[in-house]
Amino acid sequence: MGETLTMAEIEAQFSAEWVLVADPRTDDALELLGGHVLYHSRDRDEFDRKVLEFHPRRFAVVFTGRPQAGMEFVL
């Protein structure tokens, strides 16, 4: 299992990536404070496939990117 990182460290090391975090530390609002990074990828489809190989009991998934400039969302 990877080393324990804070959320600031996760964002700095894995910029604009999808990150699988095991044993996440969260606050009352479920905001991620840190945890063990198990896997990360810029490609969400690849991320979705690979994370099925990991089996943490409690985990978090976070995208460290920002909305693409000029893109509007109509979900």
Partner: peptide, 28 residues
């Protein structure tokens, strides 16, 4: 200021739980 209204949720299942980011969507 920008983007979707992103909130956190924890979803539980037989294998554990996941903290995920969801878009608050009153159109859904």
């Amino acid at each position: 200021r920008q983007g979707l209204i992103v909130v956190r949720a924890e979803v539980f299942g037989p294998a554990g739980s996941a903290v995920v980011s969801l878009a608050l969507d009153t159109g859904a």
